[in-house]
């Protein structure tokens, strides 16, 4: 009886989790979903999907823009975060430094953007791709530092030193041991950094002044325009890359909670 209850609960949870993805995808294939039809989604219409192939499509450019922004932010944050985290891990002031990393990360990004807006305008970064990347970096980099500080340990430091006494220089200590050994963790951190940048709406919208039309900005725009079918296609485009990265990282995912800054 108990086992059955467990299985039923599991199935229920899985459905709650998986249903939205399937539903949004099906929804994106139709238009004119008139009340009170439930599963008869209206007219089958993959026009919006087809328009993705058009080089002038806003959705396509949004997808590429989001990918570029998130990839650059994640690559910069992971590489600089990993290097910084070692120094902080070894520092006498580790906890104080970590506190300062938590703050921009916990503070609402849109409020952070509001506080920074004036400086971005003065620096000519407002409304530009670089501006959005710089602002995202200010949230994602501290996250990456927090993530990696939780990962560094004495064994890894000792291994790095061992390479030196075996005849390797600082560079080979990183490239031949630290990075290969930490590959799963780097991959996980990359995934999470990418996701934070990929998800961000408020900050991008405010500092991008509506000019940097990433996918979340577009979804909001389509909902405001009462155009749920475009929003659904944009939503599918937003779900796909994280799920792809999740699939790549599947073997290490459960480990990731160990290093999560929200500990």
């Amino acid at each position: 009886m108990k086992v059955e209850f467990r299985n039923v609960s599991k199935v229920l949870i899985y459905s709650v989790i998986v249903f939205p993805i399937i539903w949004i995808f099906i929804f994106s294939l139709f238009t004119n979903w008139a009340f009170p039809s439930i599963f008869g989604f209206g007219e089958f219409n993959i026009n919006i999907w087809e328009r993705l192939l058009d080089s002038e499509s806003l959705l396509l450019s949004g997808l590429l823009l989001s990918l570029i922004i998130s990839l650059i932010t994640a690559i910069l944050s992971v590489s600089l975060g990993f290097a910084t985290s070692e120094v902080i891990y070894k520092s006498r002031y580790k906890n104080t430094l970590l506190l300062s990393a938590y703050f921009p990360y916990v503070l609402s990004p849109v409020v952070l953007a509001l506080l920074l807006q004036v400086y971005f305008v003065k620096a000519g970064l407002s409304g530009s791709l670089i501006g959005v990347i710089v602002a995202l970096f200010m949230i994602v980099y501290p996250y990456s530092v927090l993530f990696f500080v939780g990962y560094w340990n004495e064994n890894l430091i000792n291994m790095k030193q061992l390479v030196r006494t075996l005849g390797g220089n600082k560079f080979s200590a990183w490239t031949k041991v630290v990075i290969p050994v930490s590959k799963p963790v780097i991959s996980l951190c990359f995934f999470q950094c990418f996701i934070i940048a990929w998800f961000e709406f408020g900050l991008t919208n405010l500092l991008g002044v509506g000019k940097v039309k990433t996918l979340p900005v577009q979804i909001y725009m389509y909902i405001q325009e009462a155009n749920p079918y475009y929003a659904a296609v944009a939503s599918c485009l937003m779900i796909a890359p994280p799920l792809f990265l999740l699939f790549i990282n599947r073997r290490w995912m459960s480990e990731s909670i160990k290093f999560s800054p929200l500990r």
Partner: peptide, 25 residues
């Protein structure tokens, strides 16, 4: 098998904006 745990990551991979849109629908 750990697959159950992996499935728990799916909702975390869906952007808040999409969740909001989905719940709106």
């Amino acid at each position: 098998s750990g697959k159950g745990q992996l499935i728990m990551f799916i909702p975390l991979s869906i952007p808040p904006m999409v969740w909001a849109f989905y719940h709106y629908l």
